[in-house]
Design a protein around this nucleic acid. Structure first.
Lengths: 202, 202
DNA sequence: ATCTGAACAAATTGTTAAATTGTTCAGGAG
DNA sequence: CTCCTGAACAATTTAACAATTTGTTCAGAT
């Protein structure tokens, strides 16, 4: 018999597959219980209700994602590389995860540009914290310009969400990895070529 | 009697107010015709159907907006200023136009991140063309870094749309003008402080 | 502590008729 | 020929209801 934590993991993995194929509405709690070889009555021993099952499942998936990006970053040492690798690893993760892609297509509201209506706000705040710490360290090391770190964190996270919506919700092929890379480099170096001799007025 | 063009302008202004207050569904063609002191039968002399009335109306409003941003830009001469003023004038315009704001709240799909499902694609392409020409000129003058102008145009326009969604559709007060300015300066100068002595690897 | 199965509550679907709204068009005014 | 009216007609929406499905609870079993 698996322990409690593994049991939950299995539960979420199973539910995620069903939600990916049928979406929230068409997936019945009977379907999920059935695939887990238990009765729906018993499933209520693990989750409060269907909505809770869904939210815990998506939350589980988002946390896996966040962890993947976080781990990828550890190989790098300078802040510019950390920033770049974190961004690319996040995109790579979803790119190679069709199940998660399908969940996002079935429920675009997972990625909202509104923090108020974000049902996964806590998990997303975790992810933002990682980004924020990179920015803070970059500023501290005088690698990055001084900035309002909270605002820029929120801005960059929104831009990231925007890409995810364009590519995985709206299926825009044009917002491909190439375009993401270009936008990433633009963010790092800016539009304008620095003029070494002139005082910058920004 | 007003001429044909003025007649259409008045028609669109009137329809826009009703769409702003009641939204597309609750606004009847009778409402619009009534406010114009004509019968709905006659309204069909000017537009094909209700959907056409709506699209022409929104298109009219979007064009006014685009023109305002375009005109603001003409006072500037260097490309960095043109870029900055164009962005700020666009935000200023909607900020001071509650009717248009309400139309966007009633119909968030006006601002889609998907070009495929963009019902106002043509008008938006016009706006993008202006942005594109600024980028092209900046690159030509070696003020801006060499770039894939088409990709970066699409990217920057999407970021702009993202801000509009956050502020006027989701009513996020945090994505205020302050935050927009910070993001604008970040886009112009980048995250990273240039190191004058070292060869850049981007 | 984990599970079953049946009972019950809540939400969804399918089907109607009535009411509202969108669209067409013959004909009239300027 | 341009612009308009008003009535007729088509299409869509709404409301109400029963039938069905699905979500949730819980007493009792392992």
């Amino acid at each position: 018999m698996q322990n409690k934590s593994k049991k939950y993991e299995n539960l979420f993995e199973t539910a995620l597959e069903l939600f990916a194929v049928y979406g929230y509405k068409k997936t019945t709690v009977d379907d999920v219980a059935g695939k887990l070889s238990m009765t729906k009555g018993n499933l209520y021993f693990y989750v409060k209700n269907k909505k809770d099952l869904y939210e815990k499942t998506v939350n589980y998936a988002l946390n896996q994602w966040k962890t993947a990006a976080e781990n990828a970053m550890t190989t790098e040492h300078d802040m510019v590389s950390k920033f770049r690798v974190m961004a690319l690893a996040s995109i790579e993760y979803i790119e190679n995860n069709p199940t998660l892609q399908q969940v996002l297509i079935n429920d675009p509201s997972i990625f909202t540009l509104s923090s108020k209506e974000d049902r996964f706000r806590e998990t997303n705040l975790n992810a933002m914290t990682i980004l924020k710490s990179v920015l803070e360290e970059g500023v501290k090391q005088k690698i990055f310009y001084p900035m309002d770190v909270d605002h820029i964190t929120e801005y960059l996270f929104s831009v990231y969400i925007m890409f995810l919506i364009k590519r995985y919700v709206k299926s825009e092929s044009s917002s491909s990895k190439t375009m993401f890379r270009e936008a990433l480099e633009l963010t790092i170096r800016g539009l304008v070529i620095p003029q070494p001799d002139s005082q910058k007025m920004y």
